[in-house]
Design a binder for these strands. Sequence first.
DNA 1: ACCTGAACACCGTTCAAGT
DNA 2: ACCTGAACACCGTTCAAGT
Lengths: 240, 240
Amino acid sequence: MCGRMELMATKARRAPRRTEALSRDVIVQAATEILDAEGEDALTLRALTVRLATGYGAIYHHVADRDDLLTAATDHVIAHIVPDLTAEAGPRPALRGVAVGLFDAIVAHPWAGDQLNRDPLRPALLDIYESISQQLQALGVPQQALSDSAGVLVNYILGVAGQNAANARALANSKMDRSAFLAAVAAQWAQLDPDRYPSVLKARTQLLEHDDREQFLAGIDLILAGIQTVNRAGKDSSAR
Amino acid sequence: MCGRMELMATKARRAPRRTEALSRDVIVQAATEILDAEGEDALTLRALTVRLATGYGAIYHHVADRDDLLTAATDHVIAHIVPDLTAEAGPRPALRGVAVGLFDAIVAHPWAGDQLNRDPLRPALLDIYESISQQLQALGVPQQALSDSAGVLVNYILGVAGQNAANARALANSKMDRSAFLAAVAAQWAQLDPDRYPSVLKARTQLLEHDDREQFLAGIDLILAGIQTVNRAGKDSSAR
DNA sequence: ACCTGAACACCGTTCAAGT
DNA sequence: ACCTGAACACCGTTCAAGT
């Protein structure tokens, strides 16, 4: 009892008082901070009650379950991307901007990349999809090719997001620092059978030199080139 | 004691005797069957001990942990794809063949699609990557563009795989049959704000009509077109 | 070497009880 | 309405003990 009083006194000195009541936003915010700091496995309900100095029931009063929390945090982290890009120059820079924005968000919050892959098209992704579709339309992609084209871009982005999250998790689990981890990965690759994986091994040096972000953008450009090529071909045949 | 004897007698009648000893392969096989039948959440160590009529220690003697089991099952399910395609006609059909093989495998085993996204480039994916790279090379893609091109294809496939797994999980969790589930999804989409998501809503009808597999292949073709366009452009500037 | 199964630590979630 | 926290059901994993 006495010990508990002291703890509360310490708490009170650090964060004078919880003036605002517990709310969904406060909970999602706290969850995001835990996810960013320690990864998805660290987001336990127990950890949340400790951080928010509350009980389980209080959390479940504002949030359906752990998955609800995870998707809400993901939506929150992704929601900022599209609005920031309305003042873009043209459809092509805008498309690259959305893609890069998503890429950067996922590098900063790898757990969100994982979550996007685990959920079917979430609200957050819908905004992205809508924005991409509109820019493609502005680029002159015909209506019937629009959903295929936007789908390729979104799925490519999701794939990259997933690998990014996987790498972040592997790094965290290894408990090495970044350079030691990269060295360990490189050592693993070096053991591959060169007769069976010649192309993988050739790509390896390039992968290590290349910036992930640059390679991601090169992929976007490649897909855009494909969209425009297919589009142009379709135009020729439908014009006559 | 008496009850236990009876249980063993019943067991013996159903499955006369376990002639083959427990092995890693047997365990992975059993895990795959559980995953296919009931999804990832159903693969518990307890369920495995029941199905294999054994104890925890026996399983942990052949397998490191649950994750080891999951990746082994994924590798096993993916490993069959590449070898089946050696007798392909040309690089383009071969590429489509690998992609479609992977797509079909993931439709049949959605949990594997999820697992591919959660692990950094697994052995199983390395074979795919190698095969794709070699076919791209045969297609005339220059060395320095190879890793970008193969990366786009692999990441696109991974993205589709992830969405496929997510949809399968959503369907399973809903406990509806397929048509009821699709109706529920359609109803959800119908509630979207048409001012905010015009393109999404336009794409919706197309998505419902389109075969997933066809759309996936259209995406592959689109990316291949982009690879060849970029490649041709590069050739022009490097030739002089 | 291979297997058994009780025990452990730790989850997400519920719910009667409080304010 | 909002919150508390003991309790429940269920995980993955370990390990002393058996053969």
